[in-house]
Design a protein around this nucleic acid. Sequence first.
DNA 1: CATTATTTGGAATAATCGTTCCGAAGTTAC
DNA 2: GTAACTTCGGAACGATTATTCCAAATAATG
Lengths: 194, 194
Amino acid sequence: MPKAKQFDELEVLKKAEKVFNEKGYNGTSMDDLVQATGLSRSSIYDTFGDKHGLFLKTLENYQASQDKAMQQQFTKTDSYKKKIRAVFDYMINDIVTDKTRKGCMMVNANMELNCVDKEVAEMALTTMEEMEQQFAMWIKEGQSTGEISKKFPAKALAKNLYNNIMGLRVTGRNRPDYDTLREITKITLSLLDQ
Amino acid sequence: MPKAKQFDELEVLKKAEKVFNEKGYNGTSMDDLVQATGLSRSSIYDTFGDKHGLFLKTLENYQASQDKAMQQQFTKTDSYKKKIRAVFDYMINDIVTDKTRKGCMMVNANMELNCVDKEVAEMALTTMEEMEQQFAMWIKEGQSTGEISKKFPAKALAKNLYNNIMGLRVTGRNRPDYDTLREITKITLSLLDQ
DNA sequence: CATTATTTGGAATAATCGTTCCGAAGTTAC
DNA sequence: GTAACTTCGGAACGATTATTCCAAATAATG
């Protein structure tokens, strides 16, 4: 019965992501979103509720595709150390190929809204905990096979690695230079070796 | 002849800092600032030009007092390794004693406005370069006295340290837990020892 | 004490904000 | 082909935005 939607929701979310990420949540207006997505106001409100709903959907979609893309990288190898390196490589590539320097939407959203938006704050916390747990698992496995040094407790080292990734998301915003980011990462990953 | 200003400019900047930092630049209205500072609109515009001018002044003042407070910590010792540790300790303390979890204004401002505000982007870049250079100097000195390991090039290690500090400013926003931040830092600083 | 210079509070302004609403267009089911 | 329902464009809404302006208050100088 109904008329089909004339747009692909995921494509719209990708376009919204770009604007939200370049201008921030409070910095982007509904006009910006109408222009960027090509949709009319009514379609946006009908599909996503309101601006905040669209933002949350966009953020979820961003993190999901980020997770998926990363997974495609680290499943290429069975080595735990190489899985970790693959995550860092993915991040560096993501940063230096980002033409507009808009950075990671989850980090940006969290830094802008952490104090005033519980949902965003919780998503950021969950993302962090999941990644840390993933790292911890790999490190523990790698330590048991002897591939990774036992010098540091797995959980602590995992948190240190994630801390470094968040660092890249900040410093990479100021200076998205491939060689520098690799240099930084090389030192961080040496922690796995000693 | 003139009637003296009825307020202390620095105190006003401190109050503005709190609001800007909790709500972000675009998230805080002039009404918020009037309420937070206790000043009238006219006084704000007369003294700081406009909202953006006030923000920049606030950000400059924040960084200056941040630098000063940090300096008071690391000048307490002559050991280069301890100077570096003092910076990390200062950061951790700054994070965990921040009741509202508002984080570092320079990082927040940069993450929100990097794409759309050249002045903020440049301030953030300068802040990073200065801190990295400071670290590099200390590391170089420490390496020459044997206090710090020569395993890594001073400049690269300096960038890694700053990267970790930026990490703390992000992860500390999600989970401002003293023990965790110390755990992370302990591993990072072990890079100086090997 | 009067004059001059400045601050200050609050009203006023124009623009922009997020959101709602309605009529026209379109699509499927009967 | 008609009925039922949805999407969609754009006008319209009230609220909020940053900013301006002016009269009243204030303080230092002569």
